[in-house]
């Protein structure tokens, strides 16, 4: 390929100013010296300029309206379920049968193995706090730092300048899995901690609420501490989607709502800026009344106020009126 051919191929890049300065300079030098390339360049430049005459077309307003009307709700956004091929199941089942059968056959070929009884020793379980702050002497830490631990908030200190030792402090995160029944106090506290402290921008908070809804709305699992944590989310979270989820979840655990939680619902009904949150708060209060709990007078007053408030959203007014008619038929 000649230099002129290469030059022509680079002309669109030259026009879109995508060439690096050195190549741009070389290209312009060549164009100035080569009459054929100069003609080509002028033609390219004119074509490029003419293309600029094609104006931007305005998007019709109806497209925006159609799009905003079609925004899916969170529940509609689901990961499609894919059925696993049957052949894979069969292969797995066959592998298990072979493994078990093979082990049994091997185990029964010779004499039975007899194990000598040995005394069992069980070490006492040391209590382990996940929030523990420990001071470790350097000699007890392996010099081989493996696993690339995530070390954060590093600070250097020298607690005693008179001795020869220095200190290095940091937070280190390791993956911890805590297992237990949903009703275990540690599990409840951990769940509460996640609900109330997870970074506001993190999807974990939303996922935590989904998990709480699936687990703690089961009969026997509802816990006042979880309900209180959801009440705090309802009060404090800045994202309407999260607040809606919190109110929905409370709706499913009426038996666990203590005074503070009920107060959070009343507060949401009174002043949450999003009408969908206010609607969900009404639903949760209705569910509470249906469960046999006598609603606090403040809740009934708030429902009455909302049902008759002229500047309130129509749906909220209707829902509040419906709730009142259900509470006092």
């Amino acid at each position: 390929m000649s230099e002129c051919d290469l030059m022509r191929e680079s002309m669109p890049l030259l026009l879109s100013e995508s060439l690096d300065p050195a190549r741009r300079e070389l290209s312009h030098q060549h164009i100035e010296q080569c009459a054929a390339c100069n003609r080509e360049w002028l033609a390219y430049r004119e074509t490029w300029r003419m293309m600029g005459d094609l104006p931007e077309v305005e998007v019709p307003a109806r497209v925006r309206e159609r799009f905003l009307a079609s925004i899916p709700t969170v529940d509609e956004v689901v990961v499609p379920f894919r059925k696993r091929p049957a052949a894979r199941w069969l292969a797995q089942a066959a592998a298990v049968v072979l493994l078990v059968g093979g082990s049994y056959w091997i185990g029964h070929r010779g004499a039975a193995v007899r194990l000598q009884p040995t005394p069992a020793t069980i070490n006492a379980v040391a209590p382990y706090s996940i929030a523990e702050s420990r001071v470790l002497p350097a000699r007890s830490v392996s010099p081989n730092i493996e696993g690339r631990p995530d070390i954060q908030n590093v600070s250097f200190n020298d607690p005693n300048p008179n001795d020869s030792e220095i200190g290095l402090s940091f937070d280190i995160t390791s993956h911890v899995t805590v297992t237990g029944k949903p009703t275990d106090k540690s599990m409840v506290r951990l769940m509460r901690y996640v609900l109330e402290n997870e970074d506001r921008m993190s999807p974990n908070r939303s996922r935590a609420i989904d998990w709480v809804r699936a687990t703690y709305s089961q009969p026997g699992n509802a816990d006042p501490e979880i309900a209180e944590a959801l009440g705090n989310v309802l009060r404090n979270d800045e994202h309407q989607g999260v607040r809606i989820k919190a109110a929905e979840t409370l709706n499913r655990m009426p038996g666990a709502m203590a005074f503070e939680t009920r107060a959070a619902l009343i507060q949401a009904l009174k002043s949450d800026p999003n009408p969908s949150v206010r609607l969900k708060a009404i639903e949760a209060l209705t569910s509470l009344a249906r469960s046999g709990v006598t609603l606090d007078p403040a809740a009934v007053d708030m429902l009455r106020q909302k049902a008759s408030q002229d500047d309130e959203n129509l749906y909220v007014r209707v829902k509040a009126a419906e709730a009142l008619s259900n509470i006092h038929p």
């Binding site: 925006r64 799009f67 905003l68 925004i71 899916p72 969170v74 956004v77 921008m201 993190s202 999807p203 908070r205 939303s206 994202h239 309407q240 989607g241 999260v242």
Partner: peptide
């Protein structure tokens, strides 16, 4: 990131 967390309120801004 908000959309990924299930909050679709930024949809109109992105549009």
């Amino acid at each position: 990131r908000l959309v990924q967390a299930g909050d679709f309120s930024p949809a109109s801004e992105i549009y």
